[in-house]
Design a protein around this nucleic acid. Structure first.
Lengths: 226, 226
DNA sequence: CGCTGCGTTGAGCTTCTTCAACGATCGTGG
DNA sequence: CCACGATCGTTGAAGAAGCTCAACGCAGCG
């Protein structure tokens, strides 16, 4: 079945033996979500964690007034909500499917047994959590030390490297979502993209953005004033 | 020796056997730092990680213009810079001793061998990293979704629970450091503490702050306007 | 065809930072 | 022991960045 071939592609599970893959396949369950459907809410009991199989999932926090800050956006092969498993607490954020999505769910208890029998799996998980920490540290740095234009520039450059260092990048999420990911609001993002265009740094055509002045963007991303 | 009794108190090392403690003691080195001395800089190769034995250590990011954002402040028994060990990368932030401090240093390679032989140690480390992630998520939420008065209120309440739910809390760090931890600057923090005082929510005497209206502070911390 | 979600633009305002000056405290060296 | 300088905290006035509120255009879809 294709589930097995998917599992073998997930970096987190690299290094498992064939019987261990079978064991893993026994304990997981598949779950489907429609676009816009909630996967879990902050405060729900963390009885296990997830791996995205298809689609796109956002992890986010909400303020009382309804403002949203996206913490992560995960695509196929990426695990999420692992942290709750190891501290036995509730989910510290919300999760929602941005597109029609399918996830695998791995229950806490069975996974802990699996990991204790598998040093390789433990090391994979340690590496995954460490990467997550590094990304968070970067987000905190951006939010606290950079102005919004700098965050936008940094994100465009990030997308460029993600997409093969092309000078034309395609946004995989809507601009309202992007604004929330960058810690701002759609209006501000729109103004900044327009300003970057007028300065000749980028040219923008809907979700297609072309980088015209890479050095200029890099200066901005480092903290230069616009 | 007292080193051994210290090691046995560190939560991260809980569950090791006596010979494993001996092994641990063999691979670590002690390091002393004066107040204000740098421990490592962002970008240094991450050849191992640390545990605070005495003193106080801050982990922080710097912007080009020199503005600082503190990520963590660690005291005795707390490990730091573990993440770099598991992704084999450079340190993603700076570390500096806020007081005269002593740390133990655990080299990467020896520790990885130790952890692979010890499921309990691996689980401890997974829990530690997960807690770290949760704290980061909380910091991101504060920076992005709360105004500065809300962050101050939340921090005062946090200190109160840390210090036995007393209504009188004592700041363990200077106000300039606190400002940097909360993502603002000393001037703004000073004005806000003064305003909270005028509103009758707190009374402030140097590093001693008394909570007068706990409910009021909690409203603020949740996002209410001042 | 109208509705709804998404993106854009404009005007005004709030919050926070910047810049500057000043007082207090503390550690140190004369 | 006192005086000095450095660091820290506070306060004031001005400015900048980004947010709120409101209106509008546009595309996709029932």
């Amino acid at each position: 079945m294709e589930l097995m071939s998917f599992l073998k592609q997930v970096p987190l599970f690299a290094g498992l033996t064939a019987p261990q893959y079978d064991e893993l396949a026994m304990i997981i369950t598949l779950q489907d979500y429609a676009r816009g459907q909630s996967i879990f809410a902050e405060g729900d009991p963390g009885t296990g964690f997830y791996v995205v199989m298809e689609g796109l999932v956002k992890i986010y926090k909400l303020s009382i007034e309804g403002k949203e800050q996206i913490l992560h956006i995960f695509g196929p092969g990426e695990p999420f909500a692992e942290a709750a498993v190891f501290i036995g607490s509730t989910f510290p954020a919300h999760a929602l499917a941005l597109e029609k999505s399918r996830t695998i769910f791995i229950p806490r208890h069975a996974f802990i047994e699996l990991i204790q029998a598998n040093p390789a799996l433990a090391m994979n998980m340690l590496a995954a959590l460490s990467m997550r920490l590094k990304k968070f540290a970067h987000l905190i740095e951006d939010l606290s030390l950079k102005e919004v234009p700098g965050r936008v520039a940094a994100h465009l450059l990030y997308l460029s490297t993600q997409q093969g260092d092309s000078d034309t990048v395609k946004l995989n999420i809507g601009k309202a979502q992007l604004a929330s990911l960058l810690g701002t609001i759609p209006e501000t993002l729109s103004r900044i993209l327009s300003k970057l265009g007028k300065q000749g740094l980028i040219s923008s055509d809907g979700p297609q953005i072309t980088i015209l002045d890479r050095d200029g963007l890099e200066d901005l991303a480092m903290g230069e004033k616009l």
